[in-house]
Design a protein around this nucleic acid. Structure first.
Length: 387
DNA sequence: TGCGATT
């Protein structure tokens, strides 16, 4: 590698980061750091899930640490050694920890750095906060002391007006306490709000008050009420994602009538390519767009979204992969579950890349008997109203 | 007859 982080350290010590030398060093660091596993996350912070509290235990009744820092928005591929190397450039470090997912070992994008001297911690904030590493802008701030009262203070908010900004979201929630972080999720392609976000309060009691005060309420000017509840534990999500990837392995396909129908479709596609004749296309794109305003299929640029109704309460993602996978490229499946019981609410979604494959899957699977239930399968519509 | 979204 061209530039090592310890080289950066000496540069930082010599104070030569003003103007050009600094940007050169950072550019070199970005090159070096991007040599690791690919990081596909979009620009901006990717992790505010610092549900773990500082590993530095504070004595009872003591005030906040002046030496312990939390570092957020670290690049996915940054190691603990690189973190220590970067922050060691400021002064002597007592301890350093990069927080990783317990199951997958993946970096959660944040860590803790505890200095020997308070002045070095202060210097690290002044020097390294806002530093750009790859696509991330790291945040360096004092860590809150480890305590039970700040755990589980993270809220998941849905049903937000698409026009609501992060600032407006914070204004809405700030009446209930001190907000540590906030975020509104946006569509990766369009950048438009997905109407979903997160609010982390300083203390759990503040989060509880916000749920009482805002869940089911309409924000000023909004036409629909919002849902406010405690966010899921992020480590559960990573293991679920891991399992989903396992289900995508090629040998998941099983022989049977559906697979045969799917094979036939693939053969037809090959013949289409070979002879330039479209032999098997139940609907055309034009046929669909002519229905605009009545039942426009949901196509977000990433694929065609399919609505699957009448799933059993114990249905899981695996069954959707198995049913739809044989018809072509499936990029995502989702079983919608009740938050409290974790049982399927009777429906789910499947995203398929290609329109023709999605159309055949729908034609083949609509009315399909799964166990003692008859499935209803169609393109997802844009229904948003509540029953 | 029911259309989500969990950093």
């Amino acid at each position: 590698m061209a530039v090592r982080l310890c080289d950066v350290a000496s540069l930082l010590r010599s104070g030569s980061w003003a103007a050009e030398p600094w940007t050169g060093v950072i550019a070199a660091m970005e090159t070096q750091l991007s040599n690791g596993p690919s990081c596909t996350s979009s620009n901006g912070p990717n992790s505010v899930s610092n549900t773990c509290t500082s590993p530095v235990e504070m004595p009872n009744g003591s005030e906040d640490s002046k030496t312990n820092l939390i570092v957020n928005y670290l690049p996915q591929n940054m190691t603990q050694e690189e973190l220590k190397s970067l922050f060691g450039s400021i002064g002597e470090i007592e301890s350093c920890k990069l927080v990783r997912d317990k199951i997958t070992g993946q970096s959660l994008g944040y860590g803790f750095v505890n200095y020997m001297e308070p002045k070095d911690a202060e210097k690290a904030i002044n020097t390294l906060n806002g530093l750009r590493l790859q696509t991330k802008t790291i945040k360096v701030s004092y860590a809150r002391p480890s305590s039970a009262s700040i755990r589980d203070a993270n809220l998941y908010v849905s049903g937000l007006p698409k026009t609501m900004t992060q600032k407006e979201l914070e204004q809405l929630f700030s009446q209930f306490g001190r907000i540590i972080t906030s975020r509104i999720l946006v569509d990766q392609v369009t950048g438009v709000s997905r109407g979903v976000g997160f609010i982390r309060f300083d203390r759990r009691v503040e989060a509880e008050e916000a749920i009482k005060g805002l869940n089911g309420q309409k924000p000023p000017g909004a036409t629909e009420p919002i849902t406010v509840k405690f966010a899921n534990n992020p480590s559960q999500k990573s293991s679920q994602a891991l399992l989903s990837h396992l289900y995508q392995s090629p040998n998941r396909r099983y022989p049977g009538p559906l697979a045969q129908q799917a094979q036939r479709f693939r053969l037809d596609n090959l013949l289409n390519m070979a002879y330039g004749v479209k032999r098997f296309s139940p609907m055309t794109i034009d046929g669909v767009t002519s229905l605009a305003g009545i039942n426009l299929p949901a196509h977000a640029g990433t694929g065609w979204c399919i609505f699957v109704y009448n799933l059993a309460p114990d249905a899981d993602e695996n069954v959707l992969w198995q049913m739809f996978g044989p018809f072509g490229a499936v990029t995502n499946v989702k079983v919608i579950r009740d938050f409290n019981t974790n049982k399927c609410k009777g429906f789910g979604f499947v995203t398929m890349t290609n329109y023709d494959e999605a159309a055949v899957a729908i034609a083949s699977l609509n009315g399909y008997r799964l166990g003692d239930r008859v499935l209803q399968v169609s393109f997802k519509t844009n229904k948003t109203h509540k029953a």
